[in-house]
Design a protein around this nucleic acid. Structure first.
Lengths: 212, 212
DNA sequence: GTCTATACACTGATAGAC
DNA sequence: GTCTATCAGTGTATAGAC
């Protein structure tokens, strides 16, 4: 089938190793922070010798950068769920749903992102000033139009977006605290559904929309 | 006046140095994380030789512990503003106000706390399982009573508390992101007032209360 | 491409003079 | 109590054998 199966195998192994390193790195960076994470531990979690990590990613910072970029890309893709043609109720509802799902499926990515912002975004400042600002401005204008049309209450769009980000990401970033307050047990499927419903209900009603 | 002015001066200087170190440590831990913070930098920010830091705080971890405990104590004191005798509207409104004020006045403390939770609360787990759980459970019961009395909408108390914590602390923890989206300028006094009003409005309306 | 051994830098902590 | 000099340990990154 393939013109060069050996080259294909090499490329495949290459991407497999890279994927294993990236997944390990996300976990270790989330648990220990950038400075606290060691390439040795990342290599151990990935099941590879330490030198291989440096072979695939020249420096620890380059590896970290890739991890942060990955979660940002996932979020920006999810952001397309904020489809303004659907109207405020559906657009906000779906966006909150997806952000909650990502908080559950990618908690470590969210945590690495949170730590990066906490420390002043030394690595990904350009992402904040570029795509994030652009997206926020655009969605803000749609929200203002909805308000002008009387489709929802008067509210500063920026603060509404901050509220959606903070509440949804809180379930990832502060998941350990939530788990502790939940009797040191992770939220069950039913509890996750209840969390999604609570967040959607309060925010939608809070801006004058019916949650169902 | 004093029975022993020299001893008094010594004690005073001692507490002055400790205070300087604690303030410097909060700032450095917030910006670099536990592992990324160096005792050298903390000493430099405090204006003292490195050895003095170790004189007042035996280990870096002990110093870090003190910083985290400080912000927790401040928050627990603020938590008393959640005075359940006031009824849901006033109690929630005042609590949100104070948490927003603290997000502005103590952003670094909030950030150190956030990073600690992000990494699984290795140091302050006992605080989560003790006073925080106790306080949350108690306030949750009051919220449930309000709901049973028809004073506010049916909502899971835990998720309401998480929403208040996440939205208010977001203005500290993600302050850098907010500043960037605000044209790389810190929020003005007016913008902070607008933020407080937005948060209170959405949450109070979201649970069926009138925000004014 | 993979992995062992190692160089080089840095950090927390302390000993000991003042 | 204060501060300089220093040690022991650890981390990133790389050289070089395979």
């Amino acid at each position: 089938m393939s013109a060069d199966p050996i080259a294909f195998r090499k490329i495949s192994k290459r991407s497999q190793n890279q994927k294993a390193i990236l997944e390990a790195a996300e976990k270790v960076f989330a648990e220990a922070g950038f400075a606290g994470a060691t390439t040795q531990l990342i290599a151990d979690v990935a099941g590879l010798p330490k030198a291989n990590v440096h072979y695939y990613f020249k420096t620890k910072e380059e590896l970290y950068r890739r991890v942060v970029y990955n979660i940002f890309d996932i979020w920006m893709e999810a952001a397309s769920a904020f489809d303004t043609e659907l109207g405020p109720r559906e657009a906000l509802s779906r966006y909150i749903d997806i952000k909650m799902d990502l908080a559950r499926s990618h908690p470590n990515g969210s945590r690495v992102w949170a730590a990066e912002i906490l420390h002043g975004a030394p690595i990904i400042q350009d992402y904040l000033e570029g795509p994030l600002l652009e997206w926020s401005t655009d969605r803000g204008k749609h929200i203002e139009r909805w308000i002008a049309n009387g489709e929802m209450d008067q509210i500063d769009p920026a603060h509404l977006l901050y509220m959606i980000w903070s509440t949804t990401q809180h379930y990832a970033d502060f998941g350990h605290q939530i788990e502790t307050l939940n009797g040191s047990k992770p939220l069950s499927d039913e509890q996750w559904q209840a969390a999604k419903l609570s967040v959607k209900t309060i925010i939608l009603r809070g801006v004058g929309l019916s949650p169902d």
